[in-house]
Simulated scan of single mutants.
Amino acid sequence: MKHLIVGPAGHGVTEYALGLARATGAEVIREETFGDSPLAGPVHVTFTDHLFGDTAERLLARIDGPLSVSLHDIPQPEEGAARYERRAGVYRALAAAADVAVVNSDHEARFFPAGATTVIRLPIPVIDSSFDPEPGTVGVLGFLYPGKGHEDLIAALPDRRLRFLGAVSTGHEQWAADLVRSARSVELTGWLTDEELAAEMGRIAVPVCPHRHFSASGSLMAWLGAGRKVLVRDSDYAREIDAWLPGRVTLVGEGGWRDAVDRHVPERLDPPRYGWAEVAQRWEETWRFAGLM
């Protein structure tokens, strides 16, 4: 099966697509931006409308034969009614047209009609991160953009050292500058290599995923892969991960950041055993069942 991989290196969805192709030994058709040349199926696509555009028709028109899709950045009502409805139509059309449609969580699967998708969770990478937490540090991992809860931490934890590990998303530079000015002690690391990121993660005393609305999280998987216990904003998805991996996350309700951070005891555990080998096996089973392998 050929894998059509679209998007710049470093983008989370592109990196997932490349990881899946490597793990399954797939032939890759690589495009920095989405093209229009026809492709004979079966073809697998790791899809987000941020990279492919806000219509399903262009992708469906390119594929002559069976189609498998991995769906990311599933629409959520909190985006606003107009944007949600526009994006929802794209994702539901792709799921309906594809021979295989996969999402990363049960929470995401509930967006689609019953039985329309299969759930294959994001892999948990094993990250060799030295455990040397600096007292008083609270860390958030991943690209910075509005809606990930950084402001909530600044408001709740004015006396803590907040360290945001990652680059600012394009277009949000002024928002990030204002964010820093609004706080007593905030550090933005900017983009980090894998080795630098692992080292910086080890310096954090309290790992936090404060995202206000999320349904799958590579940054949460990274913290878990470093063997860290993580404070996570309470949500359907967070409760799903807590049930899947008991004792790895602490659920934090609205207004609960101060108490949760004060109670957190830095600890390093063995990472869960669920990486690309297990994810690839699930994908190959799904493709075989659909007659695509």
Score class of each variant (00 low, 15 high):
Glu15His: 10
Glu15Asp: 00
Glu15Cys: 00
Tyr16Ile: 08
Tyr16His: 14
Tyr16Asn: 02
Tyr16Cys: 01
Tyr16Lys: 06
Ala17Trp: 00
Ala17Lys: 02
Ala17Asn: 02
Ala17Gln: 02
Leu18Val: 00
Leu18Lys: 00
Leu18Asp: 04
Leu18Pro: 01
Leu18Tyr: 00
Leu18Trp: 00
Gly19Trp: 07
Gly19Pro: 11
Gly19Arg: 10
Gly19Ala: 11
Gly19Leu: 06
Leu20Gln: 01
Arg22Pro: 05
Arg22Lys: 11
Arg22Asn: 07
Arg22Gln: 10
Arg22Ile: 06
Ala23Met: 05
Thr24Pro: 00
Thr24Gln: 03
Thr24Asn: 04
Gly25Phe: 07
Gly25Asn: 06
Gly25Leu: 10
Ala26Asn: 02
Ala26Tyr: 01
Ala26Ser: 13
Glu27Ile: 05
Val28Tyr: 00
Val28Pro: 00
Val28Phe: 04
Val28Glu: 01
Ile29Tyr: 09
Ile29Ser: 02
Arg30Thr: 01
Glu31Lys: 04
Glu31Asn: 04
Glu31His: 07
Glu31Asp: 05
Glu32Thr: 14
Glu32Phe: 07
Glu32Gln: 09
Thr33His: 13
Thr33Leu: 09
Thr33Ile: 09
Thr33Gln: 10
Thr33Pro: 02
Thr33Val: 12
Phe34Gln: 02
Phe34Asn: 05
Phe34Val: 05
Phe34Met: 05
Gly35Leu: 12
Gly35Thr: 12
Gly35His: 08
Gly35Asp: 06
Asp36Ser: 15
Asp36Tyr: 08
Asp36Phe: 11
Asp36Ile: 12
Asp36Lys: 15
Ser37Glu: 14
Ser37Lys: 09
Ser37Trp: 04
Ser37His: 12
Pro38Thr: 05
Pro38Lys: 06
Pro38Tyr: 06
Leu39Asn: 10
Leu39Pro: 07
Leu39Cys: 09
Leu39Thr: 11
Leu39Ser: 13
Leu39Lys: 08
Ala40Tyr: 12
Ala40Ser: 15
Ala40Glu: 15
Ala40Trp: 14
Ala40Thr: 15
Gly41Phe: 09
Gly41Thr: 11
Gly41Val: 14
Gly41Asp: 07
Gly41Met: 09
Gly41Ile: 11
Gly41Trp: 13
Pro42Lys: 10
Pro42Glu: 12
Pro42Leu: 14
Val43Thr: 14
Val43Trp: 08
Val43Asp: 01
His44Trp: 09
His44Met: 12
His44Glu: 13
His44Pro: 07
Val45Cys: 11
Val45Ile: 08
Val45Gln: 06
Thr46Glu: 03
Thr46Phe: 03
Thr46Asn: 05
Phe47Asp: 02
Phe47Val: 02
Phe47Ala: 05
Phe47Arg: 01
Phe47Asn: 03
Thr48Pro: 03
Thr48Arg: 09
Thr48Cys: 09
Thr48Ile: 04
Asp49Met: 12
Asp49Thr: 14
Asp49Phe: 06
Asp49Cys: 12
Asp49Leu: 12
Asp49Glu: 08
His50Trp: 14
His50Cys: 08
His50Phe: 13
Leu51Ser: 01
Leu51Arg: 05
Leu51Gln: 01
Leu51Ile: 14
Leu51Phe: 01
